[in-house]
């Protein structure tokens, strides 16, 4: 489905408010994407200083969440949006929660990166930067899909989640083998397991956003498709 161009509202102030909200969401997504990259870079490079700076960045993401929420409430109260505008607003409200949660998970990874920087390295985890790269790409594409109202791109993000899940299972099996063979690696191994779990959770939050983009564009809810009682 090709993206549908947005027609302007008769009231241009309304368009300006919606544009402002879009810009804030973009800014928040950009910050979150950077946090994912930096958290994994801090882990791989055993760079505690970068991890601490990245934790500080989360305050900005939280501020973005509060401001976007306030703007959503203001638009709901003043404009009483309908149809695709209403779907956009509800998406925005959910998206900021998902983005904020991804930021929190990046903070968790940073905290583990600091802990792991003090203990000997078990082995280089080459899959983790690869996983993180896919998650970053998912965030970027989900936001692109949101901006350009592109359901094909949104579906691609949803499909990538399977790839992240497969990598997660692969790394966990690998970790179990390492820990079984060498009990001294258990402490670090459990921490690494947490890191990959959080990356996998980030992909799930991004999938939520992509599903909401499809709802925004098509007006059709694809979440839990065929898995809910009485669902057509």
């Amino acid at each position: 489905m090709s993206p549908t161009p947005l027609k302007a509202h008769t009231d241009r102030q309304y368009d300006a408010q919606l544009d402002d909200l879009r810009a804030r969401l973009l800014d928040m997504a950009r910050r979150v994407e950077e946090m994912i990259a930096n958290s994994v870079r801090a882990l791989v490079n055993r760079d505690a200083a970068l991890a601490r700076r990245t934790i500080e960045d989360d305050h900005q993401v939280n501020r973005c969440e509060v401001e976007a929420d306030e703007l959503c409430l203001l638009i709901l109260a003043k404009r009483q949006p309908m149809a695709s505008d209403l779907r956009f607003l509800t998406l925005a409200l959910k998206m900021v929660t998902d983005l904020e949660r991804i930021g929190d998970l990046a903070v968790n990874i940073c905290e583990r990166a600091i802990d792991l920087s003090h203990v000997p390295e078990v082995k280089p985890w080459e899959e983790i930067p690869g996983m993180a790269a896919i998650v970053r790409a998912m965030v970027r594409e989900a936001i692109d899909a949101f901006i350009s109202r592109d359901v094909v791109k949104a579906q691609q993000v949803i499909d990538w989640d399977d790839e992240v899940d497969a990598q997660y299972r692969h790394v966990v099996l690998d970790l179990i083998n390492v820990m079984v063979n060498d009990r001294s690696t258990v402490e670090s191994g459990v921490m690494i397991q947490s890191v990959v779990k959080w990356l996998e959770r980030m992909a799930d939050h991004t999938t939520n956003i992509a599903e909401q983009v499809i709802f925004m564009v098509r007006g059709k809810d694809i979440r839990h498709l065929g898995k809910l009682p009485n669902q057509v």
């Binding site: 027609k7 302007a8 008769t10 009231d11 949006p81 309908m82 149809a83 779907r87 059709k220």
Partner: peptide, 19 residues
């Protein structure tokens, strides 16, 4: 009608993009 209308003209009218 007010969450996901089928016709583009309905959508434009209820979202204030008419004319």
């Amino acid at each position: 009608i007010f969450t996901a209308p089928s016709d583009k003209r309905t959508e434009d009218y209820i979202t204030g993009k008419f004319g």
